[in-house]
Design a binder for these strands. Structure first.
Lengths: 211, 211
DNA sequence: TTAGGATTTGTCCAACCGGTAAAAAATGCG
DNA sequence: CGCATTTTTTACCGGTTGGACAAATCCTAA
């Protein structure tokens, strides 16, 4: 009687497993074609089931996307949340940069999913940006400003600093094909993430002016 | 007799004007929905004509996209081309950053067009990346490495430096809605580009470690 | 074992999408 | 003007897409 699409919590083992399977497939498909560019058939294929079967677990395409992106947000924001006011500013920011580069290496699909959505004007996640992202950034911007006031960090706009860290680190996930095309076949190996991390830590703390 | 779709050069005044009109509309539509997410109807609407009429000027959707992106590439790479080996390294890089930020402010659609395409694996522009972008970056990377050897610039990987400049500056075009959502209504005005330029110049040259 | 719910499949549909064909209208030129 | 050429419109087509629905099958607990 109870269709799983109506249930907020899956009732059976199968429902839990299949919903996971679908979300994994949806991540794969949505992250590489965007919302409009992805079809339910593609997701169903990737999940190894028929379209009607998939639609038994999710009301529609929109609901798959929403479920997926809401579930991923916490993972995605985790590195920023871990920024610890009590820690040493330089150490904290260095490991934030490192963690973000590792996320680009290990979870590029998640990065591209968000990038795709924001690029198209974030019509489906604007709430999340204002409701969860902004408060978190506001909070951490205060922390960074506090660090700057102690003199342990040069004074700069903390918001643009956070943007700069996002941009540079996520670049290696979102624009991976470009990075690889420019670096060429010899330098395009897995080492690029380690190189990027080293470069960025140096750039962010020392800058380009020789000392 | 001669259909304009077969002609490399438009023959009449109307053909020149209408093709321009279509490309302008296509930029608007492609840049905000990506290739697959855009429909010929949307572009035709934006250009104020019917779909068959549009298809009188371009063979198909693919040709509109290719024409558009090839025409835009030069504009897009112009700032990097202007990097002058003979100039002062710091001045040259500062104005490169400024120009790129100005491009994000003045031509955000062009930035998003490329971003959208690269995010989805660059299936339609991979040739351009390898054939035009890589050689240019290789050349400019050599220039930057030369500057570093003179001691006027700290030593760092020039490729990752270029990536970092692209990432941070284009972020303000590609992720504009996120930037605005995080900065909030009070700081979301046009000043954000000027703030960004100031922040980035300082970051790239001085870094975050207090002096 | 078996009834009742959970799951899966096959079938179908209306809207949309890229693109074509041909007729109609507008344009330009001698 | 008269006529050829260019441009626009109308009508249409085959394929795809999101989604509905009911029949068939599977599972599980009593």
């Amino acid at each position: 009687m109870n269709a799983p699409t109506a249930a907020s919590q899956p009732r059976t083992r199968i429902q839990r497993e299949k919903r996971e399977l679908i979300l994994e497939a949806a991540l794969e498909v949505f992250s590489s074609h965007g919302f409009r560019g992805s079809t339910i058939d593609q997701i169903a294929d990737a999940a190894g089931m028929s379209k009607p079967n998939l639609l038994y677990y999710f009301r529609n395409k929109e609901e798959i996307f929403q479920t997926l992106i809401h579930r991923l947000l916490d993972t995605w924001l985790a590195p920023l949340r871990e920024l610890d006011e009590a820690g040493d500013p330089e150490t904290e920011l260095r490991s934030y940069i490192r963690r973000k580069i590792e996320m680009s290496r290990d979870y590029p699909r998640e990065s591209r999913l968000f990038a795709n959505e924001i690029l198209q004007g974030a019509p489906r996640i604007m709430e999340m940006l204002r409701g969860e992202l902004k408060p978190l950034v506001d909070e951490k911007a205060k922390v960074i400003r506090g660090w700057m006031r102690t003199g342990k960090l040069a004074t700069a706009d903390p918001y643009h600093l956070i943007f700069a860290i996002w941009a540079t680190t996520q670049h290696y996930a979102d624009f991976d094909v470009q990075v690889c095309a420019v670096l060429g076949p010899d330098r395009g190996g897995e080492g690029r993430f380690e190189d990027a991390a080293r470069f960025l830590e140096k750039l962010f703390f020392d800058g380009l002016r020789p000392r």
